[in-house]
């Protein structure tokens, strides 16, 4: 056996390896790029769904943007308040968690509610159906119901019901916005999670024409506008629009709406209760109540009539003694 060959091969290959290893070690020190360590920390705190809901390509890009100050600490729609708090802690700022949002379909025009103009036989896709005179429904602003939104939803939050209407599960929705982008009718909107009243109609046509096509459409009658005690709903372009900043979820508009185009989750409605020990009988709550649900004499304990109370929370805000609870 030629011992020299073994020595030669081991030495030269080992030498090469050592040389390259040393070269790489040197290069990684010499050419080290200073990366802000917070980028890595922020990235770890993110949910790593890489959904792009924040508007950046992936979680790492968002983390970089947060550290450079381009993106807000609560910019991740998936992680929610918990994630925002973690990121804020890393960045050393106040989380002031942005209000979480959910996507909502602004249409109630299911089969039977909204008329069908023709029978559609074709590809099961809203995008395709939309190309054929805007889908089979008579309303040009209605949900087509083939579930292009459900197809793109990475979180299985969208269900197409039997009546050809998309429904978004608010518990699963993380507000990534993919359905908002894909909907050819542009009727999916982002709504604050704590908003329980929405105008579930997107039709911008004049009232009479709308009424012919759909039973539950906004006919721009303006009853809601007049009924709202908070100036939070207005009819613009033949469609009622709620200002979510002003809306207090009192749901009066939904009660008054003649076509039921305003949809409210009445089970989420709150009721005011007055804590008797704290009430000093100042009558402020009685004065501010928009529906006259509070009764009481000066310097006497006041009472809320739960039948009349709409849960707007105005009395809670105004009470100088914190004597009113909303629940």
């Amino acid at each position: 056996m030629d011992f020299k060959i073994i020595v030669n091969s081991v030495v030269s290959l080992g030498g090469l390896g050592l040389l390259f290893g040393a070269g790489l070690a040197f290069a990684s020190k010499k050419f080290a790029v200073e990366v802000d360590p917070r980028v890595e920390l922020v990235n770890e705190a993110l949910p790593a769904a890489n959904c792009g809901g924040c508007g950046y390509p992936g979680c790492m890009a968002f983390a970089t943007a947060v550290v450079t100050g381009e993106a807000p600490v609560n910019g991740c729609p998936v992680g929610g308040a918990e994630c925002a708090a973690k990121v804020a802690e890393i960045m050393g700022v106040d989380p002031s968690a942005g209000e979480p949002q959910v996507a909502k379909v602004m249409c109630t025009g299911a089969l039977g509610v909204c008329k069908e103009e023709f029978q559609y036989h074709g590809v099961d896709s809203c995008l395709a159906a939309n190309m054929i005179s805007g889908g089979s429904k008579a309303c040009q602003f209605g949900c087509i119901g083939f579930g292009s939104c459900a197809d793109v939803c990475p979180f299985d939050a969208i269900v197409i019901q039997d009546n050809h209407l998309a429904w978004i599960d608010p518990d699963k929705c993380v507000a990534c916005g993919k359905c908002v982008d894909i909907c050819p009718k542009h009727i999916i909107h982002m709504v604050p999670k704590e908003q329980f009243v929405v105008v579930a109609c997107s039709n911008l046509e004049k009232g009479g024409h709308v009424k012919k096509n759909c039973e539950e459409a906004c006919i721009a009658c303006g009853i809601c506008e007049r009924a709202c005690p908070f100036d939070a709903i207005h009819v613009e372009n033949n469609l009622a629009t709620i200002d979510y900043d002003k809306c207090t979820n009192c749901m009066i508009c939904a009660e008054k709406c003649p076509t039921k185009a305003i949809v409210a989750q009445f089970d989420k409605r709150k009721t005011a209760t007055i804590i008797d020990d704290k009430c000093i009988g100042c009558t402020i709550c009685k004065k501010v109540c928009p529906v006259g649900a509070i009764e009481g004499e000066v310097k006497g304990v006041h009472k809320v009539d739960p039948e009349k109370c709409v849960g707007c929370g105005l009395c809670e805000q105004k009470c100088p003694r914190d004597a009113i609870n909303m629940n």
């Binding site: 790489l24 290069a27 050419f31």
Partner: peptide, 20 residues
């Protein structure tokens, strides 16, 4: 085996230098 070694370390090296 020698070439694999050369190529792998070369690519790594190029990546590090390029980043800087």
């Amino acid at each position: 085996i020698a070439f694999i070694l050369v190529i792998a370390s070369l690519v790594q090296f190029v990546e590090i230098v390029l980043q800087k």
